[in-house]
Design a protein around this nucleic acid. Structure first.
Ligand SMILES: [Zn+2]
Ligand SMILES: [Zn+2]
Ligand SMILES: [Zn+2]
Ligand SMILES: [Zn+2]
Lengths: 148, 148
DNA sequence: TAAACACCCTGAAGCGGCTTCAGGGTCAAG
DNA sequence: CTTGACCCTGAAGCCGCTTCAGGGTGTTTA
């Protein structure tokens, strides 16, 4: 199968597939001798599906690589896999808590201007000019991305 | 005041300050004629504090620029400010919900391997090889970053 | 007075996880 | 024989910084 078909089956773009090959999440496929098109089979699709599933769960490429390696060593213990999921779950949980803190702060900020006025007297702007409360939030970026 | 002192007072790095100047979040400061060092005053500190406060709330540079402009037009109505905060609050709220979905999916995944075995029989790996359930999550990236 | 050390400067590259762009080649249908 | 769908490569862009390379400045101390 050609790259476009694989992309459709895995619900991603062809560019993403080429990118995954470049960074080593997918092995380089064989090529059509005549036109140099990439050619894939079922096992490529399975691996890509695995990767996309992991990405849908917001795992980092590094985390996914560990899982892929484990997948290739069927006889080994799976402790490390279970641990990786636990750790990643923590990444997500921590990030949720950070964002909930932000949410609360933003709600509080929003209340500073209940009846619209001009910028000069807007409680929101005034609040933003105050010194920063110490949130440990800013530095503790685990690997799960933000809100935008 | 020199850049190091400003950085300390605003609780950020000097590199961040130089970066903000480059991308226009801070205006270019005046310079010491002799050694070309950047020189700052209280109003620079106030503006930087404002920016850092916004960043601590995970606003994007684009959003911050809008607020900075409003701050420079004290006589105008503040509707747009209030609206911007509401919108940004939505960015955060949406991202929290996305991450909570992930959290639930990860918890479910984790339960697939309650008693450690080998990779071949690990329910987690088996689950990850299944087709992807349709989460609308993947594409709806608003501007608030992830969990890592 | 010289060496050590802390601070300042610039410009470029790197991070992650892609997406987009520029500039092509391939191939079936009409 | 042209249109349009698909494929290729390599480089650059996105965001919000951080890090690096390669310097200059300025104070302190041996
Ligand atoms: Zn993780
Ligand atoms: Zn207002
Ligand atoms: Zn926002
Ligand atoms: Zn297991």
């Amino acid at each position: 199968m050609k790259i476009g078909e694989l992309a459709k089956k895995a619900k991603c773009t062809v560019e993403t597939i080429r990118y995954y090959e470049k960074v080593g999440l997918l092995p380089a496929s064989s090529r059509d001798n005549i036109n140099n098109y990439r050619l894939y089979n079922k096992s490529h699709l399975e691996r890509l599906t695995f990767v996309r599933h992991c990405r849908a769960l917001a795992m980092s490429h590094e985390e996914i690589l560990v899982l892929l390696q484990a997948r290739n060593q069927p006889a080994q213990k799976c402790d490390s896999i279970d641990q990786l999921i636990d750790d990643h779950l923590q990444h997500v949980t921590v990030r949720i808590k950070e964002l909930q803190k932000l949410e609360a702060q933003l709600l509080k900020l929003r209340l500073q201007c209940q009846t619209p006025t001009d910028s000069q007297h807007c409680g929101i702007l005034q609040d933003l000019e105050q010194a920063i409360e110490d949130n440990s939030t800013d530095k503790n970026f685990s690997h799960v991305a933000g809100s935008h």
